[in-house]
């Protein structure tokens, strides 16, 4: 009984950790981007300052908006924070894994996205509609790419339960067979999907200031104060979850398989942090190196991701 309690405590702890450090990850990515542009850049803590300021600011809401507009930030934050409960972070399992698997996580992301897309439409501005229609296109195509990636991962590692697949991945690494061809292709696809889901270049430009080119930001143009803070925070949580998942699925090196000792747990935590930092730097660096793609070339990129996963499937079967 006490062991279960410990597990739950650890699970809650690692969830809170990912939620709390998600903005920091955002700050680090911005810092890396700034440095590659020969700039000093904002402090890595800047996202926290921004969130704190927004929480203290007043709100201005559109006279056209309905209750959906006001509910959306709450739904987003609750859905993404709940999704964070399922993801194994420092340890190869999450004690809440029995309540849901990776598909539940996707469903929760879908719920958040559903509401933010509605919020974009709710304010009756052309920009909101613009953002929603682009998001509709991208999300409709991200879904098959992501599902197929999960297909490959679950075929290779057995099941869709996050804890079991991450544990399997960690186990495979120990036995030295991480380089499975199917997983490599899944990795490519997952990386593309990760960029699309977290709204980064070449899909969306998180630094853009032009209404006509925005995707995600066009939907949240009308938000201010507390609501905006919640949206930005849930966006960073989502990105952190995807990075954590990527790291734990594809590069599980250094992950402790259980909570036996303090030192293995510490190694696990340290290696996880190192890997996530490296990955986020890589993402930021790639962002520096490419331009945002033409809107109607994005389906090609997602089709490539789908094809890559499909090749992964073939490799598994053949």
């Amino acid at each position: 009984m006490s062991e279960t309690l410990t597990l739950v405590a650890i699970g809650i702890f690692q969830t809170i950790a990912i939620i709390a450090f998600a903005p920091l990850l955002m700050g680090i990515m911005r810092k890396v981007k700034a440095r590659t542009q020969k700039r000093l850049g904002a402090s890595v803590l800047q996202p926290y300052y921004d969130l704190l300021k927004l929480l203290k600011k007043d709100e201005v809401v559109s006279d056209q908006s309905s209750w959906i507009f006001r509910a959306a930030p709450w739904v987003m934050l609750v859905a993404t924070a709940t999704a964070a409960l399922f993801v194994p972070i420092f340890l190869p399992f999450s004690p809440f894994g029995t309540a849901g698997d990776i598909l539940v996580m996707l469903g929760l992301f879908g719920l958040a996205r559903f509401f933010i897309m509605l919020a974009g439409l709710d304010v009756a501005s052309a920009f909101g509609g613009l953002g929603t229609s682009r998001e509709m296109m991208i999300s409709a195509l991200v879904e098959p790419a992501l599902f197929l990636t999960i297909f490959v991962v679950s075929l290779t590692l057995g099941g869709t339960n996050l804890s079991s697949i991450v544990a399997a991945s960690a186990g495979q690494f120990v036995s030295g067979v991480l380089i499975v061809p199917s997983m490599l292709f899944a990795l490519i696809a997952f990386f593309v999907v990760m960029l699309a889901e977290s709204g980064r270049i070449p899909f969306d430009n998180p630094a853009t200031h032009l209404e006509l080119t925005m995707v995600h930001e066009a939907m949240v143009l009308e938000y201010s104060g507390k609501s905006l803070a919640m949206i930005q925070w849930s966006q960073s949580i989502k990105q952190a979850i995807l990075l954590a998942l990527f790291v734990n699925l594809f590069i599980p090196a250094g992950m402790a398989s259980s909570i036996v000792g303090i030192d293995t747990a510490a190694t696990s935590v340290v290696s996880f942090i190192a890997k996530v930092l490296l990955l986020s730097m890589l993402v930021a660096f790639i962002e520096t190196r490419t331009a945002k793609w033409r809107l109607f070339r994005l389906p090609d990129l997602l089709a490539m991701a789908i094809a890559s996963s499909m090749i992964g499937v073939l490799f598994f079967y053949l």
Binding site: G110, L118, L121, L148, M310, V313
Partner: peptide
């Protein structure tokens, strides 16, 4: 597995479709 792609695509577009149906009818 090809059917899975179709199924996932269906799910993705279905979400977009109902964002549209609900959003257009009830919002703005």
């Amino acid at each position: 597995s090809f059917a899975s792609i179709a199924f996932a695509l269906t799910a993705g577009i279905a979400l977009a479709t109902f964002v549209k149906i609900f959003g257009i009818s009830f919002l703005s």
